[in-house]
Structure formats: structure tokens, C-alpha cells
């Protein structure tokens, strides 16, 4: 393979993103890649997607967050396309939150550390996904059925 000189090599930007969805099915690397490509193709069309030149670099299954590589100068279009993609055939209603954009993979990885952490508590058939800032998702049969919040009980006395 011909190695390109630094001036001929394409320039990239790295978008860190997180997937929020109505259905909380397991999303592995291939699933995430297909989701991102569907989003870009759905909004920008095949030609627009080709111009963006997307490539999924990293995917953290636990966080449901990853890093997408796109061509420099087209990152705004890619982010807008991710924002406009709201209904997925596999995950139901989705929200692809852009955590940040960087010129390096290392820079983009820093954004992944800002994803809010959560705990899962199960009560009967229901599970409660409790986020660190007080947000709570109520999940039944792998699907979010209510969005609510958690208030710290007031200290007694």
C-alpha cells in the first residue's frame, strides 16, 4: 500500500457521542456502527454520507458511547445528522447526544469520561436506572416506560 505524505493524507475530526434510546437492547460495535451509518444515510442521503466519510473508531458497550471519525470541515453536518435522527427501526426512539468534537482520538476519549454514571435497581419486573444527577428511567421489558427523577429524602430531626 502506498503511504501518503502528511500533506496528502486526509484530515479527520473525532466526534464523541452517546446513544440514548427507548429500547435498551444490547448494542455491540457492529450494532453501533450500523446505527450511526443509518442515521447519516437517513438524513444526508448516500452522497452526503459519502462526503462525510464516517468511520466508527471506538465503542464502549457499557457506556453506550463511542467515537466517530469524520472528514474535517464536515463535522457540523455529521453532528446535525446525528441530531435529526430520532426513530430507529431497532432501538425505537433514539437521541444521539454529541458529547464533543476533537482533532485527536485522545481528545475525544476525554469526552467519554463525562458520560453520567448510573446504577440499576430491580423491583419485581421493573428496573430503575438511577443517574448520578437525580434522573431516573423506569424500564419494563427492556423499554423505558417513564422518565422521572429522584429526590434525596430530607434528613430526619
Amino acid at each position: 500500500m502506498v503511504r501518503l505524505t502528511s500533506t496528502l493524507r486526509p484530515r479527520w475530526r473525532y466526534i464523541a457521542f452517546k446513544v440514548w434510546s427507548e429500547r435498551l437492547e444490547r448494542l455491540d460495535f457492529d450494532g453501533a456502527r450500523d446505527l450511526v451509518l443509518r442515521a447519516l444515510r437517513d438524513v444526508l442521503g448516500p452522497v452526503g454520507m459519502g462526503k462525510v466519510r464516517p468511520w466508527l473508531m471506538r465503542w464502549d458497550e457499557g457506556l453506550r458511547a463511542g467515537i466517530l471519525r469524520v472528514e474535517r470541515g464536515r463535522e457540523s453536518r455529521a453532528r446535525a445528522a446525528l441530531s435529526l435522527y430520532r426513530r430507529d427501526p431497532e432501538l425505537g426512539r433514539v437521541f444521539l447526544e454529541v458529547l464533543g468534537t476533537s482533532g485527536t482520538v485522545k481528545g475525544a476519549e476525554r469526552f467519554l469520561s463525562r458520560v453520567p454514571r448510573w446504577d440499576v435497581e430491580r423491583v419485581g419486573d421493573r428496573s430503575f436506572w438511577i443517574y448520578e444527577n437525580g434522573e431516573v428511567d423506569v424500564v419494563e421489558e427492556g423499554r423505558v416506560v417513564a422518565y422521572t427523577s429522584y429526590e434525596d429524602p430530607e434528613p430526619e430531626g
Partner: peptide, 18 residues
Amino acid sequence: RDPLELLPARQLEDVLDL
């Protein structure tokens, strides 16, 4: 109508740009 329909301000700017 719910948190899934929200957008960060930066993404909103990108949508308006598009």
C-alpha cells in the same frame, strides 16, 4: 415532550446550520 427529544445547544446550532 421528554428527555429523548432534547438536544444540547451546540447540536441545535448544527441543525440550524444544516
